[in-house]
Design a protein around this nucleic acid. Sequence first.
DNA 1: TGGAAATCAATAAAAATTATCCAAAAGGAA
DNA 2: TTCCTTTTGGATAATTTTTATTGATTTCCA
Lengths: 141, 141
Amino acid sequence: MGDYISMLKQNGLKTTFQRLYIMQVIDDYGHLDIDEIYSKVLLVHPSISLATIYKNILTLVEKKVIKEVPIEGKKSKYEILKQDHFHLICIECGSVEDCDYEELSGVVSSSSRHHHFLQKKVELSVYGYCKKCIDKINEKS
Amino acid sequence: MGDYISMLKQNGLKTTFQRLYIMQVIDDYGHLDIDEIYSKVLLVHPSISLATIYKNILTLVEKKVIKEVPIEGKKSKYEILKQDHFHLICIECGSVEDCDYEELSGVVSSSSRHHHFLQKKVELSVYGYCKKCIDKINEKS
DNA sequence: TGGAAATCAATAAAAATTATCCAAAAGGAA
DNA sequence: TTCCTTTTGGATAATTTTTATTGATTTCCA
């Protein structure tokens, strides 16, 4: 749980309750899409508008306070910006797990250099089945 | 340039001109989004409907004849299914370049296993500036 | 070649995203 | 604090994107 207020101030953004709570729920749950954020914020702030969610997500992404995680065939999810990592995305339940990127980082950036490509950021996603879903499938058989 | 007809037959799909040409332009250009595909197919088949593009993309993705390449903040692009590789995505001009995945593959899959995750496919995208755009920027200064 | 099944085009409908506009709130300066 | 400027939020409209429907056309195998 981070210091959302100073993260916002550093980027010249005003700290409204709506904005703070959007960051809060994203951080709490790790990875949420627009609808999930909306429904969770609605619970504690019933008057919030969906357009407010969209607007805030846009500005928070622009200011690099949060990060978009695009997902094949689904809506993008968003996460609080954190240390480099990659994602294990379950194609059964949709869960997203963070994974340490360390060992990979060197190989990827040297590969970018080799292609005369100026690397700014890396997005690595592994699609498959998470442990929970594997277990669930095994139980049935 | 592949044998589109047998790729379709293997998946029980009929080989219509529209479908073949959709595969053709994707293959020719490497990576295209829906609108790009539509406008290019329109040139040689002026009566095609945008809905036809959507429907075909959907079935071709389902049958794994083509693959979705999700891109942050933009529409997904599509590519003909080919050997594992990753993408260098230029945030200046939007170009997408394929890159050999070989060296990385082992590290990624061992990392998945370590998390008890059953890996099905990997999507790795590096965002940054391609050589052309770097040169263009340097010329100006 | 005939005919069932798949596909297409056109269009409507639905879903997702963005823009507009005015009231409300935030945050700095006095 | 209080005032004032600027940003933001909420409601809603507009736009964009995607999906569903329907009847006509095409594919392809027997």
